[in-house]
């Protein structure tokens, strides 16, 4: 993978991982996916598996890109950045809906 693309790829994987985890949170599931039906247990498991896979892929890409030391540091910080981005997305997606119901 070209060097210039690998950082967006790592960040994107982290974003996807936390996106999946965000859906396993009851409140976000109701706001974003299905407000009537509760979150099925099997979906939670699948989403968590997907999240773990994405994180593992991001870690391997980061270590492959920069070696163990820098790779792990980059991975940890990219995870945080991904989680912050997911949270911003959730806020952005929920905002108008909440505004109307209030």
């Amino acid at each position: 993978m070209p060097d210039i693309l690998s950082f967006p790829a790592i960040f994107g994987l982290c974003y996807l991982a936390f996106g999946a985890l965000a859906l396993t949170v009851e409140r976000h599931w109701r706001d974003l996916v299905d407000s009537r039906r509760a979150l099925p247990r099997r979906t939670v498991l699948r989403l968590r598996c997907a999240a773990v896979l994405c994180m593992a892929a991001a870690l391997s890409a980061a270590v492959h890109r920069d070696g163990a030391g820098f790779g792990i540091l980059l991975w940890v910080l990219a995870l945080t950045a991904g989680a912050l981005a997911v949270s911003a997305t959730v806020t952005w997606l929920c905002r108008p809906a909440r505004g109307r119901t209030r």
Binding site: F18, R27, H28, T80, V86, C94, R95, R98
Partner: peptide, 30 residues
């Protein structure tokens, strides 16, 4: 439960606490 929650609408106090918790938890490792 509040891992990703930031309610930028409604009460200012709640939004501030959300943002405080969000940055506190998500950026905690750093």
């Amino acid at each position: 439960k509040d891992f990703f929650t930031f309610r930028s609408w409604g009460q200012l106090r709640r939004s501030l606490l959300d943002l405080h918790n969000l940055t506190g938890v998500l950026v905690l490792p750093f």
